[in-house]
Design a protein around this nucleic acid. Structure first.
Lengths: 183, 183
DNA sequence: ACCTTAATGCAATTTTTTAGCGTTAGCCGC
DNA sequence: GCGGCTAACGCTAAAAAATTGCATTAAGGT
């Protein structure tokens, strides 16, 4: 009986979703710097010690919530052609990530060291791009390389969001995509 | 007398450098998650309340220290030609940033919201690239665009460091640079 | 239905953060 | 140089948050 697994049903799961929901509610109302663990505990009807034991500290909890929110619910839109597929996806990605909540989620994800929140959230992007690539292959198009798309298009977007050194206009995002295809 | 400036000499400056030095010392010994404000206060001989008043909280202090450590002390090396200049700079940049302390500094800088730590640290990179550009112009070479260098070379490096999705080998960094010049 | 133990609640303790108030010491004008 | 002004600091007490031990609850397997 070497398997001592995490319990995934019943009360434990109910508490997790309750805490997650509370955190998301609080993030709508107030700034992230004002949120505290005791505050979350009271609003969700859970004792603080439970939160500390399960998540360690506030930043880990916020990262966990952020990853959950970033988990995609559907495949990227199918526009009929690879280039427009990628452009549509990138425009939506840039808009989501550069919004206030998007930047907050990014910061939360990158502020955590346990649990590999950054890696998991990064994987969502890879998966989407891979979907677009396979879709292109199915159409018989000359598909792109996912890693190169990350380097040429995604990385600059994330960089400018994080460092705030450049406006993320739709024109600029489009230029990143077209630059990638003429390469 | 509209100027109510920050005092920059004497005791105040001494305390700032003392606290900075203590933080750097602690970062060598222990993990960032274990460092506390009272700990820094005791080691540096300053009361905690002073630290809280000057920096707000631990993450702001860590960001301040990180920016100070990232501030360059010298211009990038002059190798005689633009391409090798950029390559040398990028290789050093990637090595510094991907090291353990580099990643910690990046996280600290991005974890702060006041004071624009991210913007200031990003500016260091722009300044270095601008130096290389002007140096190239002085030689009569066809210089590169700094913003494009950020997009093509710097952004991918930072992305892979933050999200841990790819090994940052020297070969890979070199390929980013050459890819940028053949563009 | 029973057994094992992961996960929670509660409460006491410790640690961290905040806030008030008096004191020290830069900086400026004279 | 000599005060005056006040930013910045130290000290202390109070508030808030984080940790820990112990009892209790309830999944999941036999």
């Amino acid at each position: 009986m070497a398997r001592e697994m995490v319990r995934q049903g019943g009360r434990s799961a109910r508490i997790q979703s309750e805490v997650h929901r509370t955190v998301q509610d609080l993030l709508k109302t107030m700034d992230r710097g004002e949120i505290t663990v005791p505050m979350i505990a009271e609003k969700s009807g859970v004792t603080p010690s439970t939160i500390y034991r399960r998540w360690g500290d506030l930043s880990e909890l916020l990262a966990d919530v952020a990853v959950a929110r970033m988990r995609p619910v559907a495949d990227p839109e199918d526009t009929g052609a690879m280039e427009s597929d990628l452009e549509a996806f990138i425009l939506q990605y840039a808009e989501e990530m550069s919004s206030k909540v998007g930047r907050a989620m990014l910061a939360d994800v990158l502020g955590s060291m346990e649990g590999d929140a950054a890696g998991r959230c990064c994987q969502f992007t890879y998966d989407h791009l891979e979907t677009l690539r396979e879709r292109a292959l199915g159409r018989g198009e000359a598909a792109f390389d996912v890693k190169e798309a990350i380097d040429f298009v995604v990385a600059p977007i994330i960089y400018h969001i994080l460092f705030g050194d450049r406006e993320l206009s739709t024109d600029y995002c489009r230029s990143l995509v077209s630059r990638f295809f003429v390469k």
